[in-house]
Design a protein around this nucleic acid. Sequence first.
DNA 1: CTGAAAGCGCTAACAG
DNA 2: CTGTTAGCGCTTTCAG
Lengths: 324, 324
Amino acid sequence: MANIREIAERAQVAPGTVSRALNNKGYISKETRKKIDKALKELEYVPNELARNLYRNRSNMIGVILPDIEHPFFLGIIKKLVIELKKYNYGVALWTTEYEAREEKEYLERLKRNAVDAAVVFVPVLDRAFYQELGRPLVLLDRIVEGIPYIPIDQEKSGRLAARKLYEDGCRHVLTVVGEQSDEIPSLKRHVAFIKEMEKLGGTVKVIREEWNNFELDYHMELAEKILEQEPEADGIYAADILGTAFLKVLRRMGRNVPEEFEIISTDGIDESNHAAISLSAVIQPAEMIAKEMARVLMGQIEGHPVKKIKTIDVYMYNGDTTK
Amino acid sequence: MANIREIAERAQVAPGTVSRALNNKGYISKETRKKIDKALKELEYVPNELARNLYRNRSNMIGVILPDIEHPFFLGIIKKLVIELKKYNYGVALWTTEYEAREEKEYLERLKRNAVDAAVVFVPVLDRAFYQELGRPLVLLDRIVEGIPYIPIDQEKSGRLAARKLYEDGCRHVLTVVGEQSDEIPSLKRHVAFIKEMEKLGGTVKVIREEWNNFELDYHMELAEKILEQEPEADGIYAADILGTAFLKVLRRMGRNVPEEFEIISTDGIDESNHAAISLSAVIQPAEMIAKEMARVLMGQIEGHPVKKIKTIDVYMYNGDTTK
DNA sequence: CTGAAAGCGCTAACAG
DNA sequence: CTGTTAGCGCTTTCAG
């Protein structure tokens, strides 16, 4: 692997001149350019990014921190984020926490060490102070922390759309499952909006309180079973993706027809992604929009001119196999 | 962001001494260690990885190149690969080609530029010479190229297991779909083994020839429809993941019962991953094993002592919802 | 238009 | 045990 000095020697010029030629900076005579190009080819020169990175103090990498890439909603966003960031000449370092807060912390430390130029945290679980004291470009997906940008999604609309669709389809005893409440987590608002809208329409909502801490299907299956046992009257649910799938599985197993006897609307559907044989009806949070906005916000911070106005992501109803 | 020199100044020692203290190399007196620790804390020192990277000529990153992360089989492997590589203190740079050969090339060039220390290519589509001339640590998943390691999977066993299961369950007119033939792509052998085994048992296999170039569900749906129309007698299929899902969807739509009237076995199932309401029966290619082996082979190359014997990954039958 | 020199932040070799 | 020096490979002043 030839370096720039070897090129310079062979072309009989100074290293600085080679660098200028490579980067098209400043004037270079036709003559020397030719000599340099020749040397470049002969020695099959390839620049070393590690050296460039050090000089620029940039890695052109974004750290993506999340518990588990198999979560379909996150996955859809990551897919688009990779594409978006590429347009800015940025790559993605994939960091999974496996639900360990300690891991999230460790990765954010790596952000400090300049292993990446910025990070996005999908499920931020650390104390808000931690983010605030980081002093590095950062975006959170679903957490409000003073001073740290996050991607707002129209969660109220999500709740309203779901309520209306279920009501229109004739559901009158619907369920929704809410976990730990926190003002810092904007997505929780969708349940409030859902309940409000459903009651306004004249339906009944049974709110199930259940703390959860993972995205594993088995856990959700048990939960679904328990709930269905407790609530035999229920005829519909508005639930996070995996819980929705769990309900579908359990209902099928019980021999109850979906959507005829029971409808399911997922809270966080993803557009375009559809690798399942039965697709959940869902309120779609467009992955591409989210990814685009993330990229814009990250780049703004890196370039030193933070984006002032972050777009609120619009959502829409997708009618899949679990609604009429 | 304080650097090592500022720490040295404040602690009244030389930068080299600070470096030794940080890395626990050579002897350091209690006294100076204390001074250094104090300075480290006061200035909130964080080492700069870009500088380290340059010095070591290492990024501690592996490039993962694949067409689309939403492909469930690849996704399952990536998930485990991230976990495995972390044990070696390595991270993953996620590079998707969106089915463009040009992109694969571009990413491999980045490997040359030392943006990553090694790469794994899930669906290598370039000329073999390209890989051979790279001169950088590399692993392919499913392609035999002289001189480049790949992860062998027991594809013959996969075909045999699927054939036996279908036969046992009473299927006698089964289908399998094969694309372009190439001796360089080991996974194609499973179809040969499948056909052989099924015919040995006394069943009939109809081989559908179809070139394909993407992993999109819609495309596979159309294909499934066409095939089912042409082959009304068929009562089972051994097919790649997405095509299997497509068959399931189309059969359901047609009102044909799965698995009673038609069985489906996917060629590339993944253990543990099960985010679908109906799970395909499949021959499982254990993601964790594959990822472990990939990591081992990559690290071997990076450390300069290439792994000689790469384990062949064993497969096993998983009985899901699409077989009896 | 080009060369020389300094430096990004860190580490290792070598004196002392 | 610690300081000095050189250098990883590149880029950017600053002279000339």
